[in-house]
Design a protein around this nucleic acid. Structure first.
Ligand SMILES: O=c1ccn([C@H]2C[C@H](O)[C@@H](COP(=O)(O)OP(=O)(O)OP(=O)(O)O)O2)c(=O)[nH]1
Ligand SMILES: [Mg+2]
Length: 838
DNA sequence: CTCCAGTTACA
DNA sequence: TGTAAC
DNA sequence: GGAG
């Protein structure tokens, strides 16, 4: 792949915040940008052909369909003819992934819900069991023939009256009063007027999806497909985009993007708006800004979303669930279906259709309380459920099927509440926010315009995840088993992505990182930096186009060495990255994929002549028993586990455990708890309430034995040193009947370490970094505060020598029954597991 | 020049 | 103790 | 390999 074709030549990508725009006053700017972006995407696509391993087993479309509802316009009243008739609610408000589960045996089941939310409203009653929540049975908010529209309450921020968009009544007469008189504000409103005029002039062209600025468009006819990126997904929606000082350029772009996507833009709220774009965090501040006493004065159903929602909708070419993009997730704006079933009702409805007890993996406190059915398990509906409803998709862009968002497992009940908890009132950004951004830091460059965008981290995260996911998707031919055959399998399933203009760099670094994994003696921290490189470059993290290594050094985490690599990549001159990328390194990297084979032994194997997994199978290299299992099950163990299967394995284990001791607590942790849609292994955490004087001592042994009899557990990889200790970890392999072999970890812990163990075992991030960054940064943070955090608890008084070696153990700082206690001591807000990722 | 999380199991 | 793993 |  010749670099020049990969490397975009234009200067700015479509969403960067440029004040030049303002200065020039040239409204065409964003058009140009859009074009540039689109072009870069195309180039990106070109670059996307090659790839490596690892893909989930499901066909992509299946997931995609499940996660991103394609909305039938008819159902939304959004067909062209009804374009004017603004629906009160919108597809974007659909609560998509709520899979409440059945109430389990209350008397025996430890209640482990997340930081307490006993509010009945949010956690609806559950329904009798009987229907499995297999994908087939999951009610889609779309295809559920829902009852006639009901009066909506409790949705969105607004409670006020709603008018037809033709006759909006302004709200917030005092809006922006503290901005008025500011020069910036005046220029902004002036620009807005200009913009509005431009829109009405262009309206025809707009409808044809070609916005008037003739010349530039003509030549880009085939990037038109992409230019259309997004189609008119915001058709019929009306956006209030409250002005911000010093953000004229940014806002102009936003208006333009919204209107190109078919949405209407207003500065001041009125009775017809459907959305407010707000990247801040404080409802109060927003209300004040808008000149409202409270956001409830907004029209009923108004949703406050961060800007990145729009961006993602544009990228996805369709409306996305807003749940991941709410400005105020804490209020948990109950998203509702287009058919306007009240939120709580909907949830109950879904509950009744699903069920079968499952763990709520968002569990937290061992405090006893009735177990509430919750929705920890994401609905991953099957594609055919949607097939019939997606036909109306207004703009079928080819990228659509590539884009997916991390599963948003909308655990409604999981919102934190109670003592010690505050919802982010105002700007209560805590230090962990800083940690999380620090994690990303490498991905965020520090510039004024960027730090001002509060919503950015999340956006960034989403983009990274998506980009990464797509990368691995495109890397691998589908269908089980095929992926190891390497080669031929590129059955025309061209998987392109719409990642940004620097994406090729991310790919380069991903590749480089993989390669260095096989280089012995390479500094682990150096490898980590390359790994970081994967994160830096997706367009939304680095909103400008990197033109040189020097340029990239603006990014925190990119130093001289990474910059040099970038220059190599750009110039195409073979440099270190080229010379170090040897056949040997690649082979070693593959050998290292065997479970139990690390860098050292992989190199040793290479030295002894091993060149492939087959060699390992055929010749005797004196592998350990564990490594032999790794070789034998190489394919299975290197295949990601679909979420449903994780759950199935969990259920098998949990039921066996409960059969042994009904008071046992069994939870599924790891990537599953974080809400990922596939996992590398199944992580199970076990403990038992000691209130009756008994413990889970010895349970692990009988559990494993029992599961071996079942055929659920098939191999041991590493067993506890003391089987009957309260703390014991078993690692091995198991499967569901007829399924692939899967890695399983079972961790038993003393009851009072529940909180610390949850933090530990939930970890974070995996998907992108394969580092367990959340743990690492939290522990680093604790250390800086004079504590020490490990899977057992949070300690104070740890004395370290100057090398950082621990001289004393210290003592428990807190009883760590709950995660929250730990977060509290560290002065941090508890975070939903799903948010423990950068 | 120093630090980069903190721990367990296996051989 | 070094290696590999969570 | 990068940051302090
Ligand atoms: O180096 C590590 C590896 C893991 N963990 C914790 C966090 C992690 O979430 C949990 C389970 O580990 P696992 O390797 O299963 O990672 P995961 O997060 O579950 O990802 P996946 O299993 O999908 O690969 O153990 C750490 O603290 N440090
Ligand atoms: Mg795991």
């Amino acid at each position: 792949m010749p670099k020049d074709t990969l490397f975009p030549t234009h200067r700015v990508d479509f969403w960067s915040e440029l004040d030049e725009l303002d200065r020039s006053g040239d409204l065409e700017e964003s058009d140009e940008e859009a074009e540039a972006f689109d072009r870069s995407i195309q180039q990106e696509v070109e670059a996307k052909r090659v790839k490596r391993h690892e893909r989930p087993e499901r066909p992509i479309d299946e997931e995609e369909a499940g996660l991103l509802p394609i909305v039938d316009e008819d159902q939304l009243g959004l067909t062209a003819s009804s374009h004017q008739a603004l629906p009160s609610f919108h597809a974007s408000q659909i609560l998509f992934h709520s899979t409440p589960k059945q109430l389990r045996d209350l008397s025996t089941l430890p209640s482990v819900d997340t930081p307490l939310d006993d509010t009945p409203g949010a956690t609806e009653s559950h329904q009798p069991a009987g229907v499995l929540d297999t994908p087939e049975n999951i009610a889609s908010p779309i295809d559920t023939p829902s009852s006639s529209s009901r009066r909506l309450t409790g949705t969105g921020e607004g409670r006020g009256r709603r008018d037809d968009p033709a006759t909006p009544v302004p709200l917030g007469t005092e809006a922006f009063k503290n901005l008025k008189g500011k020069k910036d504000f005046q220029t902004l409103t002036k620009h807005f007027e200009l913009f509005s005029k431009g829109i009405s002039k262009d309206v025809t062209a707009n409808n044809a999806n070609v916005k008037g600025k003739g010349k530039a468009k003509a030549q880009k006819s085939d990037s038109m497909l992409i230019a259309g990126l997004g189609g008119r997904v915001l058709e019929g929606l009306r956006f209030c985009v409250p002005p911000e000082l010093g953000q004229v350029g940014k806002h102009k772009q936003r208006w333009d993007i919204i209107s190109k996507l078919g949405g209407q833009v207003v500065l001041q709220p009125d009775t017809s708006i459907t959305h407010i774009i707000y990247d801040g965090r404080s409802q109060i501040a927003l209300a004040r800004e808008l000149g409202l006493k409270s956001l409830s004065e907004l029209p009923e159903g108004t949703v406050c979303v961060r800007w990145d929602w729009v961006v993602q909708c544009k990228l996805a070419g369709r409306l996305l669930d807003t749940s991941q993009f709410l400005s105020f997730p804490k209020t948990f704006t109950k998203m509702i279906s287009a058919k306007a079933v009240p939120a709580t009702r909907r949830l109950a409805d879904i509950t009744s259709l699903l069920s079968r007890g499952t763990s709520d993996s968002d569990t937290e406190s061992p405090v006893k309380r009735p177990r509430i059915p919750s929705s920890a398990i994401p609905a991953i509906p099957r594609p055919d459920v949607f097939a019939t409803t997606r036909t109306k998709k207004p703009f079928l862009n080819p990228w659509r099927s590539e884009l997916k968002i991390v599963p948003t497992v909308d655990t409604v009940h999981a919102l934190p509440k109670g003592p010690g908890w505050k919802f982010g009132k105002g700007d209560d950004r805590d230090d962990l926010d800083d940690i999380l951004s620090a994690l990303k830091d490498g991905t965020i460059y520090e510039e004024e315009c960027f730090t001002s965008a509060r919503g950015m981290p999340y956006c960034c995260y989403h983009h990274v995840v998506i980009a990464h996911y797509i990368r691995s998707q495109s890397a691998n031919p589908d269908s089980r088993g095929d992926r190891f055959k390497c080669g031929q399998d590129h059955d025309g399933t061209e998987r392109s992505t719409n990642a940004g203009p620097n994406e090729w760099l991310a790919k380069k670094f991903e590749d480089l990182h993989d390669m260095y994994l096989g280089v012995q003696g390479k500094n682990q921290f150096a490898i980590r930096q390359y790994q970081q490189g994967e994160l830096f470059f997706p367009s939304c993290c680095t909103p400008w186009i990197i033109t040189s290594g020097k340029d990239a050094r603006r990014i925190k985490g990119v130093g001289q060495s990474i910059a040099d690599r970038i220059d190599e990549f750009i110039s195409g001159e073979p440099g270190r990255a080229y010379y170090e990328d040897t056949e040997k390194a690649r082979i070693v990297a593959v050998l290292k994929d065997v479970y139990g084979v690390g860098e050292t032994f992989a190199n040793e194997l290479y030295k002894r002549g091993a060149r492939s997994i087959r060699d390992l199978k055929e010749k005797d290299f004196g592998l350990t028993p564990g490594q032999n299992i790794g070789v034998e099950l190489y394919e299975d163990l290197n295949t990601r586990i679909p979420r449903e299967e994780c759950r199935a394995i969990y259920e098998l284990i949990a039921s066996k455990a409960r059969a042994i001791d009904p008071k046992i607590w069994v939870e599924i942790m790891g990537s599953y708890r974080r809400g990922q849609e596939d996992s590398g292994d199944v992580d199970i955490l076990i403990t038992r309430d000691t209130d009756d004087g008994l413990t889970h001592e010895g349970l692990l042994k009988s559990l494993v034995i029992g599961l071996k009899e079942n055929g659920v557990i098939t191999h041991d990889l590493s067993v506890p040193s003391q089987w009957d200790a309260l703390e014991a970890k078993w690692m091995g392999v198991g499967k569901v009947p007829g399924g692939r072999y899967r890695r399983i970890d079972i961790l038993c812990i003393p009851f009072d370490q529940w909180g610390a163990a949850l933090i530990y075992f939930t970890g974070n991030i995996s998907d992108i970094l394969c580092l367990k960054q959340f743990n690492r940064s939290l522990r680093l943070y604790a250390r800086k505060k004079g504590y020490s955090l490990n899977q057992r608890g949070l300690y104070v008084g740890v004395i370290r020598d100057k090398g950082g070696l621990k001289m004393t153990e210290g003592e428990f700082a807190v009883i760590t029954k709950t995660e929250q206690e730990i977060f509290d001591v560290l002065g941090l807000r508890w975070r939903h597991p799903h948010l423990r990722r950068p």
